[in-house]
Amino acid sequence: MRLSRRNFWFLAIALGALILITLLAAPQNNNIRNGSTYSRAPSGYGAWYAFMEKQEIPIQRWQKPLEKLPEINNNQPTNTPTTLLRINSGFGEIGMFPQERRWVEKGNNLVILGLREPVTEASFTTRQESAFGKVTISTTRRRKELKNIEERLGDRFGAIVWEKKLGNGKVIYATTPYLGANAYQNEPGNYKFLAELVSEDSKLILVNEYIHGYKDKETIVAENNQSWVSYLAKTPLFPAFLQLVFILLILILANLRRFGQPTKLTTSSVNNSEAYIQALASVLEKAETREFVLETIGKEEQLQLQKALGLGQTPVAKETLVNAWVEQTGRKVTELEEVLQIQSKKRRPSEQDLLNWLEKWQKIRQEIFNFR
């Protein structure tokens, strides 16, 4: 069907308005604030920053681009070693910025929290021993390759915090972005351990807040002194503009020619098995033969559980089934005995009793699934 000129422009304007409304009404992504010392959320570092100031440790928030780091533009080794703390990076080790590498090689230190490493079989939350007490770690990620690095914190699954020399400086990595987060205010070992990492061999500590979207006045003025084209390219409006252009091109082509023959809609096929089950369930419900349903489903559920426990397909004694269930899952005996006793009673259950019984079987199946 060919579009008239009036309908064509009406559709184009409607699509453009829809994209614009979506951009303006969509909730902002707050993930960039994770790890910020300005944040009071559990993932923020406001409490740790206050802890450092209370200890009178020289620490500042860095709200400029990396190319503005102290002494980064000269080729001489630094006389005042500085530590830059980058939190919640989400990168692999190759994600270090070139400016950071050059700066570290001059004799400075870089601490990166939240390095992307492979997931291991370690428990998600562990308490690691350190010289400052227990350090709570909430991640299963570990560094397994320990060649040419010094492990600062780890377990049998690999390193959690490690150090690597780079020129005259060093880089300290951690697989968790929450080492000193607000959520660990009651874990003094975490705050002291992180304080030691950023303080050693350093006269000043800078926390990179620029990556969290915070900029000082000088940076804002410098970045705003640019053309509207370069500004637009850094905003969500630019990809929206590209999408609008793409849609307009499609509409133009669709108005000039057709993209093939129309395809007839096919009716969806009826699932005979599902229809039969629903019809049978309706008949059983009207006949109120709940004891038949209890017996039939109970035997099948018992057989499926038996096979899941590795007891084969030949029916076994209930005691054998219960013992295998307890041994393999570690759950209570009463959980399984209760559902088996209900289906063995020779009385008609109420509809609510039947629903409760089916729900208990569902929980038992879920326990087997989680165990496997």
Rank of each mutant, 00 (worst) to 15 (best):
E187W: 09
I368G: 03
F8N: 01
S36Q: 02
L358E: 07
L251F: 05
T37P: 11
L309R: 10
N182C: 05
L66W: 13
L204T: 05
E335Y: 11
E200C: 12
L303A: 15
L15K: 12
T289E: 14
N323I: 10
Y178K: 11
N73T: 10
Y45I: 06
L24Y: 10
F132K: 10
L153G: 00
G133A: 06
R101K: 15
R258D: 08
I149S: 04
L232G: 07
K68M: 12
P70Q: 12
K217E: 14
V293P: 02
G158T: 01
P77G: 03
Q366I: 01
R127A: 12
L354M: 07
L146T: 01
E301F: 12
E338A: 11
T136H: 04
K217C: 09
N148D: 08
F369W: 07
G95V: 02
K234A: 09
N109S: 13
E151S: 15
E337V: 06
I32V: 05
A50K: 14
T125A: 10
L248D: 04
F238Y: 15
Y173K: 08
R258M: 14
S130E: 00
H212G: 01
N75T: 04
G167C: 04
N182G: 01
K164Q: 15
V333K: 13
Y38L: 08
I368A: 00
R141H: 06
V270R: 11
G298A: 04
L113G: 07
L146N: 10
R257P: 06
F132V: 13
N271R: 13
S43M: 09
S202H: 06
N34A: 11
L115W: 05
G312M: 08
Q60D: 10
S227A: 13
R347G: 06
L253C: 06
V104D: 04
D216K: 12
R102H: 06
F124Q: 14
T139C: 11
N29I: 03
Y49T: 00
L23F: 10
E209P: 01
Y184H: 13
W9D: 00
E187G: 07
F259A: 06
R6W: 13
K318S: 05
Q99T: 09
T334C: 13
V111R: 02
E196N: 15
G16N: 07
F10A: 13
E105P: 01
Q343K: 12
L3C: 02
E274M: 14
P70V: 05
E187H: 09
N182P: 02
L309P: 01
S130H: 08
L110I: 00
F157M: 11
L18Y: 03
L305S: 00
N108I: 03
L197M: 09
Q76Y: 04
F241S: 08
V326F: 07
A181N: 09
P77K: 07
I72N: 06
N323R: 10
A25C: 12
A50Q: 15
Q362I: 03
L321P: 00
K318W: 02
Y231G: 12
V104W: 04
Y231I: 01
A26D: 08
L358H: 03
Q313T: 14
L69I: 05
G260M: 03
T120I: 14
E218N: 06
R142L: 00
L336D: 01
A233P: 03
G158A: 09
F259Q: 13
K106M: 12
K318Y: 07
P262L: 02
E367I: 03
